[in-house]
Amino acid sequence: MKISKDAVRASRLLLRACFDASGRLHTSRVKRVVKLVGEKKPRNYMAILHSFQRLVRLELEKRTAVIESVTDLSGEMRERLRVDLQKKYGEDLTLNYFINPSLIGGMRVKVGSHVWDGSVQAKLQALGESLA
């Protein structure tokens, strides 16, 4: 779908309206924006909504930590991770845990576009590249 510059600009303004003074994204506001745009149908409303969806997705990714590990993490471990990551990225960070056996060992944490990779797989890859 072709999204015009005007649509991108409008969706950016709409996204800005969904933040409160402390810079937190409000789900209720996002829902209201989508509903209102759907009802009033301004020009290019489909493009605006698509662009808005993308911006919200990126925004949510920034506030979501994806934690991959080979085995299920213990409650204590999860608590330590939560405290550390929320100290770094703010209180509204949500943590999602996944099990990924291809890591072989260790853990991989991804928040937005930042990645901390302590997995055996990454080390093996780095070793392979340094030998190549």
């Binding site: 576009s113 990779d117 080390k123 780095a126």
Partner: peptide, 10 residues
Amino acid sequence: LKTSVTKSNV
């Protein structure tokens, strides 16, 4: 090697 955690931007 044990302690190394690589930080990267992806």
